[in-house]
Amino acid sequence: MEVFGYFGALLIGLVLGLTGGGGSILTVPLLVYVLGINPITATAYSLFIVGTTSSFGAVHNYIKGNVELKKGFLFAIPSFTVVYLTRKYIVPIIPDVMIKTSFFTLTKEVFLMVVFGIIMLLASLSMLKKRRDLSTETKSDSLFKFILQTVAVGFLIGLVGAGGGFLIIPSLVFFAKLPMRKAVATSLFIIALNSLIGFTGDVQNLDIDWQFLCIFTSISVTGIFIGIYLNKFLNDAQLKKGFGYFVLLMAVFILTKELFGL
């Protein structure tokens, strides 16, 4: 199982390099179900693994001129704020058992995972759908919509506790109007900031196995460079479609598992 776990680490980096997202979708289930790590610890490890791996990818893409720092910070700053407020004030007040009848019980954990799956489903459909021409929008309208989308994404990321690449990329493509390749690169920059800042909150609260974490992360970093290399052989349309289908597949899996227990 440990061999499968380390192979999964390579896959995490590969997905991040190719699509700019999906790392957190793979990392937590891999750590919990394959390597048997406690879910709370796995969440913290995921932040470090995805954040560090994304950092290497972001630096590599920045050197190549693919990272839009201005739009990256424009997205990250309000996103950080809303994620923090959501995690601190909204998530804690959600009751452990939200609905309970003689036939049905909806727990907080199931609710959040279903919301997570629905968000992924909508994000994937938005990436696969042909978009109308946005060139007639004014710059101010586009910026206003971009900021609104950023706040909404920050809230959703805070609610479900994901890295959010599957939410960030559609925003960068459709509201910041970045081509898919630059959206992927800029997403890595935003994910790195989100994840590593989040991880600092766990350092003092958990007993961290740094040796395991560094080995796992190193393999994941290797994977992201492989993904970045393979990325050169795909065009924007292929990346967009591939990312959309990947997120759709994961959304169907999560919703099926949580709603029907399969």
Rank of each mutant, 00 (worst) to 15 (best):
M1A: 08
E2C: 05
G5A: 05
F7V: 10
L10C: 09
L10M: 10
G13S: 03
L14G: 12
V15T: 09
G17E: 02
T19Y: 14
S24R: 14
T27D: 07
L30Y: 13
Y33Q: 09
Y33E: 12
Y33N: 12
Y33F: 08
L35A: 02
L35W: 06
T41V: 08
T41P: 00
T43M: 12
A44I: 00
A44L: 04
V50Q: 15
V50T: 11
G51T: 01
G51L: 01
G57A: 00
A58L: 00
N61K: 11
K64M: 08
K70R: 15
G72D: 02
G72C: 00
G72V: 00
F73Y: 13
A76Q: 05
A76D: 04
I77E: 06
S79F: 08
F80S: 01
Y84E: 12
T86N: 04
R87K: 14
Y89M: 13
Y89T: 10
I90G: 15
V91N: 01
P92V: 00
P92T: 00
I94L: 08
V97E: 07
M98E: 15
I99M: 09
K100P: 11
K100E: 12
K100M: 02
S102N: 10
T105V: 02
T107C: 03
E109A: 05
V110E: 12
L112T: 12
M113N: 12
M120D: 07
L121A: 06
L122G: 06
A123M: 12
S124F: 00
M127V: 00
M127F: 05
L128R: 04
K130D: 11
R132M: 11
S135C: 10
T136V: 06
T136I: 05
K139A: 13
K139D: 15
S140D: 13
D141Q: 07
L143M: 15
L143Q: 15
F144K: 14
F144L: 13
Q149H: 11
T150D: 05
A152F: 15
V153T: 11
V153I: 15
F155N: 11
L156M: 15
L159Q: 07
L159Y: 06
G161Y: 09
A162S: 14
F166G: 04
I168L: 13
L172K: 03
V173A: 04
F174T: 13
L178N: 04
R181H: 13
A183F: 02
L188M: 07
F189Q: 12
I190T: 09
I191C: 09
N194I: 05
L196E: 10
L196A: 02
I197N: 14
I197V: 13
G198P: 03
F199S: 03
T200G: 04
T200V: 02
G201D: 10
D202P: 00
N205F: 04
L206H: 13
L206F: 08
D209N: 11
Q211K: 09
F212N: 05
C214E: 14
S218F: 12
I219T: 07
S220I: 01
V221E: 10
V221L: 09
T222W: 07
I224M: 10
K232H: 12
L234F: 08
D236G: 06
A237E: 13
A237V: 08
Q238N: 11
F243Q: 05
F246M: 02
V247D: 00
I254M: 14
E258W: 01
F260P: 11
L262R: 14
L262I: 15
